[in-house]
Simulated scan of single mutants.
Amino acid sequence: MTQTYLGIGTNIERDKHAHAAIIELQRLGANLQVSTIYRCPAAGFEGAEFYNFVIGIDTDLALPEFSRRLRALEVAYGRPENAAKKQDRTLDIDILLFGEETSQQSPQLPRCDIFKFNFVLQPLYELCPDLIVPCDGRSVRQIWQQEFKSIGGMSNLTATSLNLSDDYQ
């Protein structure tokens, strides 16, 4: 089993798509962990407010197959095949960490968003503060202590919970 951490984002029908991500990702592995869900403004473009959170999961799938299945989930929930960066999203699933794997190619591992966005680092810190980030050598806690304030701290993050109506269950 490979311990994996995924960044999840949605700003279209947020409750529905956040819930769908949790349900669907349970089918791809074991030991699912879900961080706090944070509301925050769109980063780098004018768009609706996002829900962002991190899911930890152990998977038996190899990275190429795992990545393919994540992409299929995004498409199944309405993300266009040719979606551009910095636009509204029904469901965005990014592999942040995949065991000890490192890569500069797609998917980039560890994903640089860990070091750039508070809405990625804060929920990752909640799930695995003592995990050593491959190629960096620091624990998530050390990265959080050294970088979190400079990337915004909690200034634009608001903890929230899913509003699950009968339509989403």
Rank of each mutant, 00 (worst) to 15 (best):
D58L: 05
T59E: 06
T59H: 03
A62F: 01
L63D: 06
L63Y: 01
E65Y: 00
F66P: 04
S67G: 06
S67L: 12
S67D: 10
R69Q: 13
L70M: 09
L70H: 03
L70E: 12
A72T: 04
A72W: 03
L73N: 05
L73V: 04
E74R: 08
V75S: 04
V75P: 02
V75W: 00
V75L: 10
Y77D: 06
G78C: 10
P80I: 03
N82P: 00
N82H: 11
A83E: 03
A83M: 04
A84H: 01
K86R: 14
D88E: 15
D88C: 10
R89C: 10
D94E: 07
I95A: 08
L97Q: 07
F98C: 12
G99Y: 04
E100V: 13
E101S: 10
S103D: 06
S103M: 13
S106Q: 12
S106K: 14
P107Q: 12
Q108M: 09
P110R: 04
P110C: 15
R111L: 03
R111C: 05
D113P: 02
F115I: 11
K116V: 07
F117V: 09
F117M: 09
N118K: 12
Q122L: 14
P123C: 04
Y125K: 07
Y125N: 08
C128A: 15
L131F: 09
L131Q: 14
P134C: 12
P134V: 13
D136T: 07
D136S: 15
R138L: 15
R138V: 09
R138I: 09
S139C: 11
S139V: 12
S139L: 05
V140G: 14
Q142D: 10
Q142G: 08
I143M: 07
